[in-house]
Amino acid sequence: RILSKERRSRQKRMNSHESWSLSPEEFEIWDRLYRIKQSDGIKEPVLPQVQFETLESLEETAKPQEGEVRELSLSEWSIWQNHPLPTSLVDHSDRCHLFISAMEMMELMRYQKGECSYEQELQPHLRMEDVNIPGNKRNLSMAKPP
């Protein structure tokens, strides 16, 4: 019986904000605890926009930002990214593991100068019939071993 009472009171609370927006109480909490205000002295976090260097851009151009913003960086901590970071409930995806292994590969090649071990390893396996596509001819010379 106690349980059902509790459930009923929870339902009552639920009813007060059936709409998508915050109830006045929730708004008060958000405003007090989480909302970033000018007096906080921190910048509004924003995500970088999608952009294609090689295509005509159709994405919405970033709105002029009021005040200062901090664009969240996906590359600032790259040296931390050559091993899987801890997970909570969601496992790393294949795509994520691909990223990690690419970061690891780049870390290993970072100090190579000139000759590239990846290239040297693959060169003997190259068959020109796999790559000999029209329009590619002017670049043929580069595949020939020196």
Binding site: M106, L126, R127, N136, M142, A143
Partner: peptide, 29 residues
């Protein structure tokens, strides 16, 4: 090897277009 070769060709084109240089290591990556 075929992908590496083709990527190399595409990177050469970008080098010409944009006046930049790719290291062999960046092409490999």
């Amino acid at each position: 090897a075929a992908v590496h070769y083709t990527v190399g060709c595409l990177c050469r084109e970008v080098e010409e277009d944009k006046d930049v240089q790719f290291s062999k290591q960046s092409i490999a990556a």
